[in-house]
Structure formats: structure tokens, C-alpha cells
Amino acid sequence: MIVDFVRITDSAVYHDVHRLYDPQGDSLFSKARMLRSSIMLAVSALECHRGGRRLFAGVGFCLGAGELLYLHGPNGAGKTSLLRMLCGLLPPAAGEICWHGRPIARLGEEYRRELCFLGHHDAIKEELTPFENLSLSARLAGMRLDEARVLEALSRLGLAGREDLPCRALSRGQKRRAALSRLAIDRRPLWLLDEPFTALDAAAVNEVAALIGAHLEDGGLAVLTTHQPVEITAGAIQRLALGDEAESCRR
């Protein structure tokens, strides 16, 4: 399908190109996204309460295309809560999160079509095989994938021989790889990853770091929480500290 014209309005061009193009057409697809330099996640004065205590307040940052945000801080500092706020699962006590300048509360599905969230849970079904899990999450993300791409993504994460084993039979690390294989096929611009490197061996860590690097080069955004020091090559890196390390006012 050839695009006859591309409407350059702030938020619309990205959607037109995305809808007009079959996700397989990678090369042209990513070139279109470079066209959109002002993809922006703007967060202002975010506040979070848990159990009557205020975890953090006044948290704000801006993320442009190709940028990565490191969230670090001690356990219980609210890193996961912040991530869940960014993906719209947890409504913030105060403050606002804007995507393309529009608050995510009003965007709803439109925003959810743009983000890929990976939490502590692996979000894979024990009874299904990695192959079924991955093709299912692809369909849920709205992508039509043929078998070859799914197998290629799985082998990239080192699950070459185990595509048809029920996930029950896999080890903790392999389950985590099966969950992360989702990143290999994901074309959505905003990645929210909660400690993606836990329970992974060195090879898998490098592979995931490469995936994230490619995603950033591709003009995507990522928010990452991790405790291991990991080198992500591409993209501008911002850091945000929560909890004691931060100076945010403690109640």
C-alpha cells in the first residue's frame, strides 16, 4: 500500500501512517516515525499515596523520541506505582500525564494502542506454549503476525527448541524470556518495563538491552526500572530518582 499523502498535524500523522501501513513493512514504517520528532510523554507534578502515606510528590519529566528514562530508588519507593500510573492502570492522586499533549485519562484506547507494559508478573499463561502466548499477545496488541516472525522472535530470545512446550515446563528465566519475547515483535512507541532484567542470564540481558537500544534508535520511548547497572547504547538517557535518594518532600 503506497501512502498518497501524509497529513502533518501534530498528533494525527503518526496514526494515519500506522493505520495505512501493514506493520510488516518495517523499513518505510520506521522512516515515517522519524518524521514525527515531537512524540512526547509529559508528566507533571505527579503524586502517589499508598496506605495513607505519600510515596512521592511533585514528580515531573518530559520524554521525547528516542529517549530512555531510568527510574531508580530503594524498594517501596513507588517505582512500580509510577509505572502503573504511566500506563493508566493506577490513577494518580494528583498531577497529570500527557501523551501528544493530551491527558491520557481522556485518550483511553488510543493511548493503550501506543504503549507496551511489562510488569513484575510475566503475563504468560502456564498452560499455553511460548508460541501461543506470543501470538496471542500480538493479536491483543492488534498485530497480524505470521508464524515465521513469531518463531524468529522466540529464537532471538533463546527459546529456539521450546516453542511448543507448555510454559509450566520452563524455568523461571525461560518464562521471563518468553514474556520478553513480546518486545522483539512490538512496534508500539512507548515501552514501560518494570525490572525487565530480573532472573535473566548475561546473554539474555544483552539481547534485551539490544532490543531496547534498537527501539530507541527507531524513535521509540522507554521507561525502565532496574537494579542491575546495564549499558543501553543508543538514545539520550534521563535519570529520575525516587524515595530516599530523591529530595522529594517526605510527608
Partner: peptide, 9 residues
């Protein structure tokens, strides 16, 4: 097992 979050998203 966290799949409900993915369904919600």
C-alpha cells in the same frame, strides 16, 4: 499471573 493487566491494556 498478570495477564489480566495485559487484557486491561
Amino acid at each position: 499471573d498478570g495477564t489480566l493487566e495485559q487484557l486491561a491494556l
